[in-house]
Design a protein around this nucleic acid. Structure first.
Length: 549
RNA sequence: GCGCCUGUAGCUCAGGGGAAGAGCAUUUGCCUUCUAAGCAAGUGGCCGGGGGUUCAAAUCCCUCCAGGCGCGCCA
């Protein structure tokens, strides 16, 4: 149980005993803005002012005098009606011990234990390379999967390949045009030419592999062959980009596998629930029943299923594969979240079995000016370009330092220079310093303590040492917030404050001191705790733990 | 026009009923000792405007202003 919940429970016991009427969910316990103010604070006295018709400070004093918990050493009622709580030394030490024994377990809230989750992300159309814009979903989805694993879920990552779309066909037609041109049998260009340098390259790579065979078959057949070739080629290039980003998918799910009767079956199931109606030759999902502004087409008048129906079938498939939770990471331009959720409910799935995380667009800046990107205009910067310039760690950190729902302004100049002012350097530098201390200890032939019992923790009395211990104690609360809201950027923030505490400690407390071995050992253990906790947090957002910088 | 997102320090952004925050920029101290890619302190704010709910609003509601995205029998 989180310490915060324990404090709420204790406060509720007190109010109940006194006959004051307030529900536990209305008792606010939170971290004060500054750590000097305490580890937790409550505004409970203020909430009681009206019903009790008493001064906040009096209520605060009365509650504080009744409050007693092993984990809390000091309870400070304030004149403005707040009550601040400070953790007790034994509690801080027990948290420290947990950090050393099992840092990952310490920050985990195993609410997903025994459950399976599937995170679907990126799922970019296989019609071109990943860009800096749609690449945003890569670190977000990966970090969300990591957060779910922290909660005990068995989590898989899946990439949905849209291999049936009209866009894939357009690319194939454009490639066919270049193919014929390069073989000196020019044909008229297609109505819509796909821009981008990679389009003619696809043509020449096919020529290299298969020669002019396509010229000897009917154009429709040739385009079909090319379409399949282009998709597999683009997918493997996307896969390479993602692997360079150290993102790996358990499954690559092709839309076409749903077209073998599964989509039709899903459609029939919806029909049998009486939420489908035929109008103007098409079949409509009656979403206005759920409050939608208009109904949505499931099967077009030409008999082909819409994207929505395909997506409903796909999500039904995911849930039928036994996942308790499906998370989708979607760009802000996806607008069919609600119709999809309604359909899944109609099909009998729990409404909370699908969570969607949306992310806003990315704006790129170079020389303080916005770089306009447009894929259809052939003007874009690829994810690979970014990774080559900035490296995976800086890229991840920038992507994950803002809330998903914020528009992200990505400054390419910062990335390009591998700016040492970047927050990722600050965090990784803290880790490197930990490692440096370890090397120094070895050089001085000081045994690095491995067992809790080998050291005297009570020697850690410096304010910056105490602050590190207090930060350890609060870490499970911080991670719980990140997990429950599937918000990796909060982890990025937590890393920053922990790194800050460490740098401050490093400055104030010389660790290696051959004249005071006992204190040195205690501090080495503290450094080990920080190092382990940083490793776990770095792993969540997917950045490296460098030995040296 | 309708829907979603956004407006917080000079810049980029966290916070999303409770005590205004971080990084960058800027000013000033701190290296013969574990990496100064660091630490410490300072400057900088009617949290877009106005109204409402509340003991309490940057946060919730209404309205206005400004920006982004979406609004096909596209995917």
């Amino acid at each position: 149980m989180l310490i915060r919940s324990k404090i709420v429970q204790k406060l509720h016991e007190i109010t109940t005993k006194k006959g004051w009427d307030i529900a536990p969910e209305n008792i606010v316990v939170e971290q004060p803005p500054k750590i000097q103010m305490g580890d937790f604070a409550t505004t409970l006295p203020l909430a009681l002012v009206k019903s009790l018709r008493r001064k906040p400070v009096d209520i605060a004093n009365e509650i504080a005098s009744e409050f007693s918990m092993d984990e809390v050493a000091s309870v400070q009622p304030l004149p403005n009606g707040y009550i601040n709580f400070f953790f007790s030394t034994p509690f801080l030490q027990s948290c420290f011990k947990s950090v050393l024994e099992n840092p990952r377990g310490f920050i985990s809230n195993p609410s997903g234990m025994g459950k399976k989750a599937l995170v679907e992300f990126v799922s970019a159309n296989p019609t071109g390379p990943l860009t800096v814009a749609n690449g945003r979903s890569a670190p977000i989805g990966d970090a969300i999967a990591n957060l779910l694993e922290i909660q005990g879920y068995h989590c898989d990552r899946e990439f949905f390949i849209n291999d049936m779309g009209a866009k894939a066909q357009k690319v194939a037609k454009s490639v066919f045009f270049y193919y014929a041109q390069q073989l000196h049998h020019p044909i008229p260009p297609p109505e819509e030419m796909y821009p981008g340098d990679y389009v003619p390259l696809l043509a020449s790579s096919y020529i290299e592999k298969e020669g002019d065979a396509l010229l000897h078959m009917p154009p429709e057949k040739a385009i079909e062959v090319l379409q399949e070739y282009c998709i597999s080629k683009m997918i493997s290039s996307i896969r390479e980009d993602l692997e360079f980003f150290q993102i790996y998918f358990q499954s690559w799910f092709k839309e076409s596998t749903l077209h073998d009767g599964y989509i039709q079956d899903t459609f029939q199931q919806l029909c049998s629930q009486k939420v489908v109606e035929e109008k103007e030759g098409a079949h409509w999902f009656l979403t206005t029943q759920f409050g939608d502004e208009k109904d949505r087409v499931l099967i077009r008048s030409n008999g082909l299923p819409t994207y929505l129906l395909g997506d409903i079938a796909y999500h039904r498939n995911k849930l039928e594969r036994g996942y308790d939770l499906c998370v989708d990471v979607w760009g802000a331009d996806q607008s069919h979240v609600n119709p999809l959720k309604w359909a899944l409910e109609v099909l009998g799935f729990a409404s909370d079995s699908l969570k969607t995380v949306t992310f806003q667009l990315v704006h790129l800046f170079r020389d303080n000016k916005e770089v306009k990107m447009s894929k259809s205009g052939g003007n874009y910067i690829t994810l690979r370009d970014l990774l080559n310039e900035a490296g995976p760690d800086v890229s991840r950190f920038v992507y994950l330092s803002r809330s998903n729902e914020q528009h992200l302004n990505f400054d390419l100049d910062v990335a390009k220079n591998r700016d040492p002012k970047s927050p990722v350097f600050y965090a990784q530098y803290a880790f490197t310093r930990c490692k440096g201390i370890g090397r120094e200890a070895e050089a001085c032939q000081i045994d690095i303590p491995h067992r809790w019992d080998d050291v005297d923790i009570s020697l850690l009395t410096n304010p910056s040492e105490i602050q590190v211990l207090r930060r350890f104690a609060i870490m499970p609360e911080l991670l719980d917030r990140a997990c429950s809201s599937l918000a990796p950027h909060l982890v990025t923030q937590d890393i920053h404050i922990l790194a800050n505490d460490f740098h401050s400690f490093y400055e104030n407390c010389r660790v290696i001191d051959t004249t005071n071995i006992e204190l040195t050992k205690a501090r080495l253990l503290l450094v080990k705790g920080i190092e382990q906790l940083l490793s776990v947090l770095f792993a969540i957002i997917g950045i490296q733990t460098p030995e040296r910088m």
